[in-house]
Design a protein around this nucleic acid. Structure first.
Lengths: 122, 122
DNA sequence: TCATATAGGGATAAATTTTTCCCCTATTGT
DNA sequence: ACAATAGGGGAAAAATTTATCCCTATATGA
């Protein structure tokens, strides 16, 4: 596991939430788990652009941060299910607010993002 | 400027908002600008852990994404002021929701974050 | 004359995150 | 015997983001 050389700031609420939500796929993972897609393979299908490896890593971090729990069923083939903790549940309205703003402003966002990408590549 | 080799996904609202808010200091920049700290030097004082360089880079991205505007006064020594655009303003309640959740759960967050940091370092 | 304040940028290094590649477990069905 | 299924993980490479270092310019005040 990679060990941080620069310690994070934990001064204010924004620092703290950033520390647990920063990670390319974490918010989506929480969202889909909340929607009932609990098994790793389901999550992978919902987020095909992420590799299984990265999802595992980020799921582990979410678990360490006590936003989700992992239940391993001792069956073969293996079965694993993730669920939100009560703590994790409280994040859902916040994530909904984020997604909502993104949805409402979809058109404008797509436009400015693409404009910037183009100017970067020349 | 660094040119992305992997194009971002822009499928849903969460992808879109992620694209404009991802960046270690961007949310804080928007927040402080909204609070009235408009000049680069003020922002630097509010965010002493970031280097001036990175703040400039991230301010430029926020500007490209039309969340803030930059006004340069032709005086010496130079004076620059950033302001939120109307579009940027609409993000403030969302950021407030994030910071609020972090504030409310400060104790628990600090605890789980530190626990993980320790287990990483052994 | 020299330090300070203000704003900015290039080049490069370091840190961090994400991807790629390859391998392992055990059972069921062919 | 072998593939398929379901879940994992190590090591190294690549991508991306941040940090460091050093440089520009001009007016003001000591």
């Amino acid at each position: 596991m990679y060990e941080r050389k620069i310690l994070p700031n934990l001064n204010c609420g924004l620092d703290l939430i950033g520390e647990v939500l920063y990670g390319k796929w974490k918010i989506r993972l929480l969202w889909f788990i909340n929607e009932g897609h609990k098994r790793p393979s389901e999550l992978q299908r919902k987020i095909p652009d992420a590799t299984r490896r990265v999802l595992n890593i980020q799921l582990k971090e979410l678990e360490d941060h006590e936003l989700i729990t992992k239940k391993i069923y001792p069956v073969v083939p293996p079965k694993v299910e993730y669920s939100l903790t009560d703590f994790g549940q409280t994040l859902i309205p916040v994530i909904a607010a984020l997604g909502n703003w993104g949805d409402i402003n979809e058109e404008q966002l797509r436009s400015v993002i693409l404009k910037r990408l183009k100017s970067e590549s020349q």
